[in-house]
Amino acid sequence: MIAKKDLEHIGWLARIDLSEEDKEKYTPKLNSVLDYFSELDKADTEGVEPTYHVMPMSNVFRDDIPTGSLSQEEALSNAPKNQDGFIKAPRMM
């Protein structure tokens, strides 16, 4: 079960600012889903390997050959804030 404090921590990890109202609203919904997930506990997975990739592929590479880049204009075209060719982010501290 997720308590409000857990939700605050998860919200922080996920960088989603949660208002008090959000926390009230989300907590029961998240818990009902987690409750549903407890279904997983019933499955016997002793000795079963996890499947990370459904196709058994390996060693997919590219050659070390340049294929071109976007222009600076294209690279910055969607950035809400930029300055002198840099993307402008908020202050660090």
Binding site: F86, K88, A89, R91, M93
Partner: peptide, 12 residues
């Protein structure tokens, strides 16, 4: 400096 700068510029 990092702790005083008003913004951060990023070059990718």
């Amino acid at each position: 400096t990092i702790d005083r700068s008003k913004y951060t510029l990023i070059d990718y």
